[in-house]
Design a binder for these strands. Structure first.
Lengths: 250, 250
DNA sequence: CATATACCGGTCAAGTTCGGTCAGATCCCG
DNA sequence: CGGGATCTGACCGAACTTGACCGGTATATG
């Protein structure tokens, strides 16, 4: 296994579980103790995990590195993306948050006449040459890997904009609302919420019941939510009680 | 197998899997290790993949193929880019204008520790995953084809920034100064000039004697100029008279 | 409190991977 | 057909990564 690949896997495990023991990592990764130790040392050095005796813990300060591309949730994301795009009509003004699901939304927008605002570099790359799409890019400090613009510059740019709807992604959802793992990101996303009349949330079913470091907003802020068939009944009812219209794709 | 075809296949594999090891590529493509290594080096250079030890990883999105190959004076631009990058030292704060020559500058910045500010999407793509480069993106209305951010949002973002030097490109130069073909672009570039202590201009020799719709600034604004050997003597003298130090590459 | 166990950081040799160089092959253009 | 540019595969020394080992230290246990 490649070095970076292994470290990404470590991050994912830690983000999912909050804590992993050294032995658990050795077993799951098939690497030696020394190697895992070195990886943790490195990841601790750049602030992505916090080392503890016998393992490592979550710090909350990292946006999930490029998602589990190979995993099963990609098809769901694609279907969600298609469903959201289908509901967006020509002439609309849409703000697209960063994230793999919103990227799938962007993929399905070709052909429509739209104003699109985004702080995501990958999305901007995708849409910059679409003839009928007027693209406004939110600038700021560019977060490596995920390529989203954050920080005061991004916040300032957003205060001058007003859009019809925002398509928002998140790291986790519970009855408390939406969560993301990075505080800078959440700050920026709050501005996005303020800038939009309607708040659409895209979240595949694996996001439910998961929290992360930073609370973004409560469910009452959400105008509409898109997810897949995997949504558990209890979460469907939670959303219903909160008055959030849910669209379940496929 | 053709070169472009092979590189395309590499991109597809990486996009599908997120990671590929070098050996995997060697096997699947039937090319030698050296060749694959060179391909990855190239693809990393233009920001389409991220090289890691033993293989390469997905960066997020793949840019629509550039027109760069077609441009006439590419070798000159590359040499100019290299020369400018060589003069930029670790720790600097640099503002990079959009344009093919400044893109060549960006290509040569790997390894340096810098703060880079840019309004160019291609340059941002190139630098977003450079570990030692802190990248600040200027947002705004994204101009198709060239992928530079313009307009009031860009101008507003620039008023809040201060950089050591700006590396500026232009469409034409005469004794009257610098020209560009787009008034929106020129408005934004004026802000860039204001935001920088030093103004470095990159312009291959074909730019001299050409004007364009919009006048950007006079020669006296320029702190330093980089061009290639093709510079005619009379222009060299014009620059000298205007007090602009000229660096002629190669 | 003494002892056993688990965990730590550092060192080392072996194995990989890297970047640069070189010569041959291929293509292009006059 | 010849000369130049480009691409390719092979090779090599250097740099990096890895797993094993070891002595020391923190934690658990009796």
């Amino acid at each position: 296994m490649l070095l970076d690949q292994r470290r990404d896997e470590i991050l994912q495990l830690i983000e999912r579980q909050g804590f992993v023991s050294l032995h658990e990592l050795v077993e799951k990764l098939g690497a030696s103790e020394s190697t895992v130790r070195r990886d943790l040392e490195y990841l601790d050095g750049i602030g992505q995990v916090r080392r503890t005796r016998g393992g490592a813990a979550y710090t909350g300060e990292h946006i999930t590195p490029f998602e589990e591309r190979g995993t099963a949730s990609l098809p769901q994301k694609q279907r969600i993306g298609r469903a959201v795009a289908d509901e967006i009509e020509s002439g609309d003004t849409v703000l697209l948050d960063g994230g793999t699901t919103t990227l799938e939304v962007a993929r399905c927008l070709n052909g429509k006449s739209l104003q699109v605002v985004t702080n995501s570099l990958p999305i901007a790359n995708l849409l910059v040459n679409q003839p009928n799409i007027e693209l406004i890019l939110i600038g700021g400090y560019l977060y490596p890997r995920t390529g989203v613009a954050l920080g005061p510059l991004a916040a300032a740019a957003l205060t001058n904009l007003r859009v019809h709807r925002v398509v928002m992604s998140c790291g986790g959802i519970t009855e408390k609302g939406l969560f993301n793992s990075n505080t800078l990101l959440v700050d920026c996303e709050r501005q996005m919420l303020d800038a939009a009349d309607e708040v659409w949330v895209v979240a595949d079913s694996t996001k439910f019941g998961r929290t992360a470091l930073a609370h973004l907003c409560s469910l009452s802020t959400v105008t509409r939510l898109f997810t897949d068939r995997g949504l558990e009944e209890r979460w469907r009812r939670t959303l219903e009680d909160a008055g959030v219209p849910v669209t379940i794709v496929e």
